[in-house]
Amino acid sequence: MSNTGHDTHSHTHGASVEAAHGSHDASHDAAHIAAHVGAYVKVGLGLLVLTGVTVGLSYVDFGTREMNIIVGMLVAALKAGLVAFIFMHLNGEKITIWRFLIMTTIFVMGLFFLTYLFHADPISGTSHSTH
């Protein structure tokens, strides 16, 4: 891989310990990756099964519509977690990325909180048959 002469792992100036170790990708040697491949397929199959579970559970009566929504969202959150942690490599991702995500979470929660405030002060014309 190093016939470009620039921007290779051998060229990290040794400025910091992290750089000297190379990016975390460098540790992904072929054997390491090969071990991951099996996990990717398994997670994919798991996601397909969970999709079936989501569909199946939506036809089960959990008492109220709200309960069904909560159950559906829990399964969706599980699926989203699998995608984020395994496919998007968030397990073992650098702290910089996690900082971004923590801030994003805070801001998104703020956004949803604004929606929640609707209960306290509904905008007229939105809480009726606004179809």
Binding site: T8, H9, H11, T12, E18, A19, G22, S23, T96
Partner: peptide
């Protein structure tokens, strides 16, 4: 390709 020293990415 190489990691930036400060972010490690």
């Amino acid at each position: 390709v190489s990691a930036r020293p400060d972010t490690g990415l």
